[in-house]
């Protein structure tokens, strides 16, 4: 049951920011409500004002960033379903649309938004983990102006971001991988929300075509692990183990990278599992994600299916 509140429906970001600034802690930005209304029903949040951001121009748009013409900007009020179905997303960041297809369930995807997902910083959400491998940055708007923050700086911990109370999350901008990048997103868990998630992307050297080392060399690796530490993290040590390797050597390297990733997470005992189990599972699923990505690099789709596991 919800307590009464006043609903504001600004049509410009300026108006919305002014409302948030004026109402302070009494107000909450509201888009799909799949997180916010849930927390309000559970009594964990009790805002007296909701500022609906869905009518703000541009908040529902997906487009290419004008400046670069290459980066992909997703408005805060874009639903998971819209991401899943966007031809532009599929063309520029195909894994993002595949992952959107597996967020929560169909009803949440129809209503829940990208901005809400990121702003709540639920440690068991999918998007932030994946977006870390896409050099995501978020746009924050306030009466003081606009700032852009790397996603990694924006998400500070469980349900904690560096958004000030008068700031509004306007959009997230992703840097699509170069062509010749093969990637996979794998999540595992028995609960409603995943126990862990791994995003892995391997960029192969695309300059020499069919040459001996061409298209076969991993020139850049990106690995992010979510749900296990206090926030999703890029696993630099794991990435380093993969860079400048032949894809043919990936099996051995994947094991080393997986172990490096496992060493780099900071799990705690909780309902989702014991810390040592989760650490071990990070190794298992980083390995799996890399092998699936490598198979895709070879143009193959792994037929392996794992229980309680979603592969996107």
């Amino acid at each position: 049951m919800l307590r009464p509140f006043t609903l504001h429906r600004p049509e410009t970001a300026e108006e919305a920011c002014a409302l948030l600034a004026g109402l302070g802690e009494e107000a909450a930005a509201y888009a799909g409500g799949t997180e916010l209304l849930l927390m309000m029903k559970l009594g964990l949040l009790r805002p007296r004002h909701l500022v609906d951001v869905k009518r703000i121009r541009g908040f529902g748009d997906i487009g290419l960033e004008p400046l670069s013409g290459r980066r992909l900007t997703i408005g805060a009020a874009v639903t998971h379903r819209a991401v899943e179905q966007s031809a532009l997303v599929r063309a520029r960041c195909p894994l993002v649309s595949s992952v959107a297809r597996h967020v929560a369930n169909v009803r949440v995807r129809n209503v829940g938004t990208v901005g809400g997902n990121l702003a709540f910083a639920d440690p068991h959400s999918d998007l932030a983990t994946l977006f870390l491998t896409l050099d995501a940055s978020v746009e924050l708007l306030s009466p003081r102006g606009r700032r852009e923050l790397p996603l990694d700086d924006f998400v500070r911990g469980p349900w904690e971001t560096s958004r000030a109370s008068d700031e509004l999350l306007g959009s997230v901008t992703l840097t699509p991988w170069a062509s010749d990048t093969a990637a996979a997103y794998v999540k595992f868990g028995v609960h409603e929300r995943p126990t862990l998630a791994v995003a892995a992307a391997l960029r192969l050297d695309g300059t020499t075509g069919a040459g001996r080392n061409g298209r076969d060399r991993i020139v850049e690796a990106r690995v992010a692990v979510g749900c296990v530490s206090l926030k999703p993290v890029r696993m630099a040590a794991a990435e380093a183990r993969l860079t400048d390797l032949s894809i043919g050597d990936l099996d051995d390297a994947a094991r080393a990278a997986a172990d490096a990733a496992a060493a780099g997470v900071d799990p705690a005992d909780d309902l989702y599992g014991s810390a040592d189990y989760k650490r071990e599972m990070v190794a298992v699923f980083v390995g799996r994600a890399l092998r699936i990505a490598a198979a895709r690099a070879r143009g193959a789709e792994s037929a392996a299916r794992f229980p309680h596991t979603v592969v996107a």
Binding site: L7, G33, T34, L37, L38, K41, R81, A104, N105, V106, R107, V108, N110, V111, E192
Partner: peptide
């Protein structure tokens, strides 16, 4: 009441939503 079970599902403009966590407005 937490969008997990689907017992409250209705379609809004053809899309399934959890009516338990969806403002009437």
């Amino acid at each position: 009441d937490t969008q997990v079970c689907g017992a409250c599902t209705v379609l809004v403009d053809g899309l399934a939503v959890s009516a338990c966590t969806y403002l009437a407005v």
